[in-house]
Amino acid sequence: MRHRNILWFASVLSILLILPLITDDAFFLRIITEAFMWIGLAMAWDVLAGYTGYLNFGHGVFFGIGAYTTAILMMRSEWSFPFALPAAGVVAGIVALFAGLPTLRLKGAYFAIATWALSRAVQQVALVLEITGGPDGMRLPPFLNPKFFYMLMLGIVTATFLLFWFLMERASFGLKVRAIREDESGAMALGLNPTKIKIQAFILSAVPTGILGGMYAYWITFIDPASVLGDLVTDQAVVMAVFGGLGTLFGPIIGAILIFLFKTYFWAYLADYQVLYLIILGLLIALSVVFMPNGLWGTLTGYIGARQALRKGLAVNPQAENETEKGDKTHE
């Protein structure tokens, strides 16, 4: 990060840290806490989809597994929350490891299908199992402290952001996954082990998702298969990342904030038309893909980069090597 970026990051973070000190509005804090959660989910989805090029259409399953792990450990085994929360991440990671093992060796489509099938299978199983409470869901002991959840959610999402920033933009891992996204056989010829790296990326995407799920369970205090394992979690994460911009760190954040704001207003004023929301989400994905394949953030940075290049009188756009540009390679 350049100095200016560090300054930006520090100021945004400090504003967010001060916010709960100056306001006691529980509703307001709750909205922002949920926005953090969606930022985390969209970022985690993008690590696999945008950076590695593998679409996980069952992302919500890790959220649900995390939520149920925390809930089951707290309610059935009487673990305390500080231990049950990391366990959610561990279980999500293990499931990702085993689900990714056969499917990530193959082309992207198989993986997309397998994750989609996995999420539907887990949904059905959670509905019939005894331990998950079936369709009635589970209730957790209420812990009514909005500021605690605000701070914890902010901490988890910031940690996730910094981890992703380091791994994807600074460490060699980011280059490795990009190499796999661009050309898998080429990456293999360079001595990389694509399967191993893809599984690492999958786990990297699943663990924060599981932890966020565990947070959600304790925060909302009630989970059922429809709310945490339903398709809506995946759908929204996909829309946020695609609309914001795949393969960037800031794209999913911006997408998550905009879509979440829209969702909050929409559900507040048009609560009778909740299913309309699905149409809008689907339309947004389709339109983004057709008219804005780089997403909002990618298009914006591309535009600004082009303007700057014009002003400097450069023939070549210095931002052209931006990670969202992938040239005109076609995979046949």
């Binding site: 679409l55 992207g108 996204r181 389709a286």
Partner: peptide, 18 residues
Amino acid sequence: KGNPLLMGLVFTFGLGLM
């Protein structure tokens, strides 16, 4: 722009959702 196959998958996913 982007990976067309990936975009095709995302597109039909959005379509299905719609």
